[in-house]
C-alpha cells in the first residue's frame, strides 16, 4: 500500500473511529455515563441535577464577583460579564475533559483488563458529561444574556470545541499512561494557559507587543471565534483556518499514537 493511501486511510480512521464509537456502542456509553452520574450524586437531595447545578452556581459566582463586587460594568462597559462567561464556560469544559483524559486508561482498567471491552469508546465516555452539562449551561447563559438566536448558535460551540480537542485528548491519554507526572502537572499547565488566554480579560488589555504573539495560542483563537460567533461581531476567519490546520496536523499523530497504545494497554495495566 502506498504511503499516501495509508496516510489517507489513517486520516479517515482517525476521524471516523472515535466519532463512530458513540453510535456503535451507544448502550455501553449510556450505561457508563449513568453509572458515573449515579456515583457522583447518589445520596444527594438534588440527585442528577447536581452536574448542572455546579456550573450554574459557577455562573452565579462570576456574576456576583464581576458584576456586583467589582462592578466591571463601570470599568469596562456592560459586556464584560458576557465576555467572561462566553469564554469561561467552554474553557472549563475543555479543561475538565483534558485533565480527566490523562488518567483515561487507568480509570477504566478494571473494565477492560480482562474483558472484550471496546477501548475506542473511552474518549467518548469522558466527553459526554462535560459536553452535555457545559453545552446546556452555555446555551442557557447565552440565551439569558444575548437572546434566542445567539443561544441557538451556542449549541454548536462545545461540540465543535470537543471535536477540535479530540487529538489533544488522545495525546493526553497516551502521555498520561506512560508519564504519571503528566496527570499531576496538567491542571497547573491548564491554569497557566487560562491566564495567558484572553478569558478573564479583553484581548485589547494586553500590551501590544504581547498581543502580536497571541496567534501562537490556539485557545486565544478559540476565544475570538466563540465571541465572533455568539456576539455577531466580525467572524475571524484567520483564527478558524489556524485552528483547522492545527487540528489536522495533530489528528493523525494523536490517533496513530492512541491506536498503537491500545495494543499495549491491556498488557501494561
Amino acid at each position: 500500500m502506498s504511503f499516501w493511501l495509508r496516510l489517507g486511510r489513517l486520516c479517515l480512521d482517525s476521524l471516523c473511529v472515535p466519532i463512530a464509537a458513540p453510535f456503535r456502542h451507544a448502550s455501553l456509553i449510556r450505561m457508563l455515563v449513568q453509572r458515573e452520574i449515579a456515583a457522583r450524586t447518589s445520596g444527594t437531595l438534588l440527585g442528577k441535577l447536581w452536574p448542572l447545578v455546579q456550573p450554574g452556581l459557577q455562573v452565579l459566582g462570576f456574576w456576583f464577583m464581576f458584576a456586583v463586587v467589582y462592578d466591571m460594568r463601570n470599568a469596562r462597559g456592560p459586556s464584560f460579564l458576557q465576555y467572561l462567561l462566553l469564554g469561561m464556560l467552554p474553557w472549563l469544559c475543555l479543561s475538565e475533559v483534558l485533565s480527566r483524559s490523562t488518567g483515561l486508561f487507568r480509570e477504566f482498567s478494571v473494565l477492560f483488563a480482562r474483558s472484550p471491552f471496546p477501548l475506542e469508546v473511552l474518549p467518548s465516555v469522558v466527553v459526554v458529561i462535560p459536553g452535555i452539562v457545559y453545552s446546556t449551561v452555555l446555551v442557557l447563559t447565552t440565551g439569558w444574556m444575548l437572546g434566542v438566536v445567539a443561544a441557538l448558535k451556542a449549541v454548536l460551540v462545545i461540540p465543535l470545541l470537543l471535536l477540535w480537542a479530540l487529538p489533544l485528548l488522545l495525546l493526553c491519554a497516551v502521555i498520561g499512561l506512560f508519564v504519571r507526572d503528566f496527570g499531576q502537572a496538567l491542571p497547573f499547565v491548564l491554569t497557566l494557559l487560562m491566564y495567558v488566554t484572553p478569558i478573564l480579560y479583553f484581548p485589547d488589555m494586553l500590551p501590544p507587543q504581547v498581543r502580536d504573539w497571541m496567534w501562537l495560542n490556539p485557545l486565544a483563537d478559540w476565544m475570538t471565534v466563540i465571541h465572533g460567533l455568539l456576539t455577531g461581531t466580525a467572524f475571524p476567519m484567520n483564527s478558524v483556518w489556524r485552528l483547522a490546520a492545527l487540528w489536522l496536523v495533530l489528528l493523525v499523530p494523536g490517533w496513530l499514537l492512541y491506536r498503537r497504545t491500545l495494543l499495549h494497554v491491556r498488557e501494561l495495566l
Partner: peptide, 20 residues
C-alpha cells in the same frame, strides 16, 4: 472478569451485556 467491583450486580448485568 468484566465486573466492576463497585457496581451492583444489577448494574454489572447491564454493563456486561452492553460490552457484549
Amino acid at each position: 472478569a468484566s465486573f466492576h467491583p463497585e457496581m451492583s450486580g444489577h448494574d454489572n448485568v447491564y454493563l456486561t451485556c452492553a460490552i457484549q
